[in-house]
């Protein structure tokens, strides 16, 4: 099953790819459209998730990520198209017995303990995972009899994950699982996610962090304003998107930068030049050869919005604004 990088200028929704055996198909979206009033949340959204696959739905806030997940969990019926979970309508309870979800929560009943929360959620599932196993996976052994209100931020997030895992699901849905966590807690969660892989379990996660998507996913779906801009393995997406930002003080002209391979966008900022590119190293090497006096060099990650802009501008010098971006991707 070759996964092609969807060109950003693709005119029609992708043709149905019914080449995968139904048994391995975990989730599918077919021509899904949804709008909240005048705001389009999803438009012609197509996605298939097979067993054992980790798919990251990557997009800035408001891209439609959460809407797609809510449909998958049966919380929302699509206005157009269809959503299937294990071949069933997710709104029917049966399909959700094989689903575990970690949603964005602003609170959980605070006076119940970790053990009480997990025992209750375990009772919802026909074949739950043993409590000890869940606690070991999420490193919550030490705090099992502490109430939710007394947990640290990282521990709370790990309990949200434990709740998702307790039913031993075949599909794990993670809605921005590390948003708002400190670096150490993020790394702790990533370690757990990777420990969960390779057991035939599929994961669909949303994130607005390219690094997170790259680290965890087999496949990245780039979503912007409800439409899929690109889809493919992380290396392909990273090569296509401007994932790095190089800043340097140099006498080299903007046009020189634009001529370099892999450069998507160039901006002048006082005496410094800022270039968005797929990989920083070739550009830095070229700059230092062409201008031995170049200094003030800084390399950082590009924002997701920058990455999207670069993707639709195709490396041309202009920076299209949001409207141009949307117009550049016909439905």
């Amino acid at each position: 099953m070759p996964i092609e990088l969807t060109p950003p200028t693709r005119a029609a929704p992708p043709t149905p790819r019914n080449t995968r055996p139904a048994a391995t198909l975990v989730a599918e979206f077919r021509g899904v459209g949804h709008a909240y009033g005048a705001t389009v949340a999803l438009d012609g959204f197509e996605l298939e998730v097979v067993r054992g696959e980790v798919v990251a739905v990557l997009g800035p806030n408001g891209a439609g990520k959460t809407t797609a997940l809510h449909m998958l969990m049966g919380l929302l019926a699509p206005q157009r198209g269809s959503v299937r979970l294990f071949g069933l309508d997710p709104r029917a309870g049966g399909a959700r017995e094989r689903l575990g979800a970690m949603l964005q929560l602003s609170g959980v009943p605070e006076t119940l303990t970790v053990r009480e929360h997990l025992r209750l959620f375990a009772s919802y599932y026909p074949a739950p995972r043993p409590l000890d196993e869940v606690l070991a996976l999420t490193a919550l052994n030490e705090v099992v009899d502490r109430s939710y209100g007394t947990l640290s931020g990282g521990q709370k997030q790990r309990l949200h994950l434990a709740i998702a895992l307790v039913g031993d699901p075949d599909l794990l849905v993670l809605d921005e699982p590390t948003t708002g966590l400190d670096a150490a807690s993020r790394r702790a969660l990533w370690t757990i996610f990777r420990a969960l892989l390779g057991r035939g379990r599929a994961i669909v996660l949303t994130t607005h962090d390219l690094e997170e998507a790259d680290l965890l996913a087999d496949r990245i779906v780039l979503l912007h304003r409800g439409r899929i801009l690109a889809e493919g393995p992380p290396e392909q997406i990273k090569a296509r998107t401007a994932s790095r930002r190089v800043r340097v003080v140099t006498h080299l002209a903007e046009s020189w930068f634009r001529a370099q391979p892999g450069v998507h966008d160039v901006r002048r900022d006082g005496s410094a030049i800022e270039a968005l590119c797929g990989a920083a190293e070739p550009l830095v090497r070229a700059v230092l050869i062409a201008d031995p006096d170049a200094h003030g060099l800084a390399v950082g990650g590009a924002t997701l919005e920058d990455a999207f802009l670069a993707l639709t501008s195709g490396g041309a010098g202009t920076t299209p604004d949001g409207a141009t971006l949307a117009a550049g991707v016909p439905a």
Binding site: R96, L99, L103, Y124, G167
Partner: peptide
């Protein structure tokens, strides 16, 4: 919402 997403 989390409870509704579960098979409860």
């Amino acid at each position: 919402r989390l409870k509704r997403a579960s098979p409860m």
